[in-house]
Amino acid sequence: MLTLQYVPMDEIIQLDSDRKVTKLLKIIKQDKIVMLEGRLSNKEEGMLIERTMEEIDKKFKGIEIASLEPNVRKDIGSALRDGIFKLFFGDRRGITIMGPANIIKEIKRDPNKLQLYTSNRRGRK
């Protein structure tokens, strides 16, 4: 069985980067796949990698992560909406999938598609 846990934007938007990363890693370490509404900032992605490296041991092998951003359309309506969205969310729209490396072997991206290659050897005892 594979568990996907949805993390909506408003559940993490008020957290600082450190707490955000802690929360996401905690879910991943429970052998769940996170479906995050939105994307992390570059700085947060860097932090996520650092924190992941600190946690790697015989059981936890790290993570796989991929995010998609919305198509950039340049009509006035969406440009306005973009402007407003950026103001509030720093343009973090999109979706991010992340999970433990022992379950997700690889994520391939096609512009609007994510393909998860899962492992049959779950590495669980």
Partner: peptide, 8 residues
Amino acid sequence: GIATKIDY
């Protein structure tokens, strides 16, 4: 090299 996972 930077990676998100390492498996010994």
